[in-house]
Design a protein around this nucleic acid. Sequence first.
DNA 1: ATGAAATATGAATCAGTGTTCATGTTGAGG
DNA 2: CCTCAACATGAACACTGATTCATATTTCAT
Lengths: 199, 199
Amino acid sequence: MEYVKQPKTKRGEQTLKKICEAAEALFAQKGYYATEISDITHKAQVATGTLYVYFPDKLSLFLHLMDNLGRKLRRAIRLAKQESPHTSIIEQERISIRVWFSFVREHFGLFRIVWQAQFVDEQAFKDYYERFSQGYIGEITKAKEKGEAREMDPALLSYALMGIYSFVALKCFVFDKSEPDDSTINQLVDFIAHGMLRE
Amino acid sequence: MEYVKQPKTKRGEQTLKKICEAAEALFAQKGYYATEISDITHKAQVATGTLYVYFPDKLSLFLHLMDNLGRKLRRAIRLAKQESPHTSIIEQERISIRVWFSFVREHFGLFRIVWQAQFVDEQAFKDYYERFSQGYIGEITKAKEKGEAREMDPALLSYALMGIYSFVALKCFVFDKSEPDDSTINQLVDFIAHGMLRE
DNA sequence: ATGAAATATGAATCAGTGTTCATGTTGAGG
DNA sequence: CCTCAACATGAACACTGATTCATATTTCAT
């Protein structure tokens, strides 16, 4: 189970935040194994031991970030969808994509961190995606009942969608180092709605 | 640049093969950083130093596997497609999916190895996907010219497709530890062809 | 058969890194 | 202005794990 010591003063709060921000940036940039504790403490401008005031070890820090980021992302998507209720499942997906991209832009670390969690803590990795998948399954099932969505295993579809989003983000943010523009988002939504064949 | 010493005797060939097979299994199972040289040599039943007869270091071994597996997969897909030329792009995709799944089954290590390459050797990681992407771009462009495929950036589409395949394999092979059956493949092909909306 | 090249061995080395801990500093409430 | 819990420090420690290398064995062309 993940563990963080909750700070009890303003100062402690600040320090914890500095550590988390530094760690997020470094894990994202260099990966879990390649970032050293000293990298993190140096970037955060705290002493080595300070990190261990808040986290019992390196892994706990990693898991804390992963948990935190996943929570933030789910929350951001949920809130954005609530702003436009009663729209079609496709429009809901458009919203998801928008939030996802802007989240990746802001927390560039997230999906690089999650990406490698597979080899840091397999259970945490699985939980992360299963959690998103569960959310999707609910929505897809509803859409299917309304006759909107194609007959297809919702769990399978959820992973297909997550795969698209993850790899497109990989392409844009990591490889091309550029932002997905509106046209990209439109093309993606059309593909998800109607596939790659011309009608 | 990747380096392997080419063995010059039958014995050497056997030894190299043992090392590669052990390494593939272990990198796949535990990840690059978590597998130790001693794990590999032990599983391969050779002495520590033997590994260094063939590879200058751990990274070279990893890159060799990655290169090798990528090559094999591309070759397998190419050959399978050649067996059914002149079929629609969708049927070609069906073939790709089939080969991909059966390849992952046989070389379970491949995509776990590639998955984490992002943090082992970023350039090799990018090259791997870009290579697949390039192949796709050619085919998609042709299909677009024939009016088969939707108006969409081929590079973008290629990453969307790779994302689908990767994540579905993740779900099936890693999470569910089960094989994708024919129904799964059919659903995927339909989704890729026509999207998630009911026609 | 023979010896030179190729291959195999594994204990020892050595550099790097996560973690500990004894000690110092801070700051808010009494 | 004191005091105590909370927080911060960073040198030292302990351990791991990749790599080396001097030596032994096997292969195979002649």
